[in-house]
């Protein structure tokens, strides 16, 4: 089980609801992923439009919990207001907090992020901050009251996998009691398995599944990879070393010492 604030989930895979070829494939992929928490957003509604109602029905049919985001917000004020609007719409205290510094890389504005997180925590939100892999920033988020921290593996949608393994390892070591989620940049099931093997509690992804040739099959592949990665972590991985160490017994090797 993995704990997000006071709620426990059995699935360690959080999945997004965007970019799928069709609403039906989105639903099938989410079901195949086994995810119990899906990310959603809030956007402007056209006068007379009912796009929001249609999307709401799709999510409601899945019967699983939602994690609204503040995607696209570039200031503390925008992010805080968007979080409050999301709470109105989705009736949940959860918020995936994004404050973006740079449009090209979607690099988080970590200074604004810490400020916004503090405001929202005081207002009763359960904040899931999307951040870089910087330990100092993560510690500031924890100081602000975040019980979940979500560092990136690589830029959003880049599919590059874990770029800075040592930074993510350090976060895990220094924040043993915080629920850590690798969010963004995963492209392959093996990337997700690596994150879980490092001791991360969960991964959050969207593009890698939605943009796969077969999103439903890929969602299933990620589900298996997350389960395998976690099982590997729990089994206790051996330490890496620089030199070879024979696995086959040396004693009794045929012709041992026979060569002069």
């Amino acid at each position: 089980m993995v704990k997000f604030y006071d709620t426990e989930f059995s699935s360690r895979l959080l999945i997004g609801t965007a970019l799928y070829p069709s609403p039906a494939i989105m639903q099938q992929a989410i079901r195949a992923s086994g995810a119990q928490l899906v990310t959603v957003s809030v956007r402007r509604e056209m006068a007379g439009g009912k796009t929001g109602d249609a999307f709401w029905s799709l999510i409601h049919e899945l019967g699983i919990a939602v994690l609204p985001n503040t995607a696209g917000c570039k200031s503390v004020r925008e992010a805080v207001t968007t979080a409050k609007l999301a709470r109105e719409l989705f009736h949940t205290p959860r918020i995936k907090l994004e404050v973006i510094a740079d449009d090209e890389t979607l690099q988080p504005d970590v200074i604004g992020l810490v400020e916004a997180a503090a405001i929202l925590i005081k207002d009763g939100f359960e904040v899931y901050p999307y951040c870089t892999d910087d330990l100092g920033v993560a510690m500031k988020l924890v100081d602000a009251g975040c019980r979940v921290v979500m560092p990136w593996a690589a830029p959003i949608g880049s599919a590059r996998g874990i770029v800075n393994r040592s930074a993510l390892t350090l976060l895990r070591q220094r924040l043993p009691d915080i629920t850590l989620v690798v969010d963004a940049g995963l492209g392959a099931p093996s990337h997700a398995a690596q994150a879980l093997e490092l001791g991360y509690d969960a991964v959050l992804l969207n593009t890698a599944v939605a943009k796969a040739a077969d999103p439903v099959a890929m969602a299933n592949a990620f589900r298996l990879a997350v389960e395998a990665g976690r099982a590997g972590f729990e089994a206790g991985l051996m330490d890496a070393r620089d030199f070879a160490s024979p696995s086959t017994p040396v004693v009794g090797t045929p012709f041992w010492h026979a060569v002069s």
Binding site: G16, T17, T39, V40, V42, R43, F55, P68, N69, L89
Partner: peptide
């Protein structure tokens, strides 16, 4: 503006109103 206050929340010249709805997100 919570829904319960829509009928009482006044508008004035120059106000900036955002009307939002659930949507797909990552």
């Amino acid at each position: 503006i919570p829904r319960a206050r829509w009928a009482s929340a006044p508008l004035k010249d120059g106000d900036c109103v955002e009307i939002l709805t659930p949507r797909q997100g990552g």
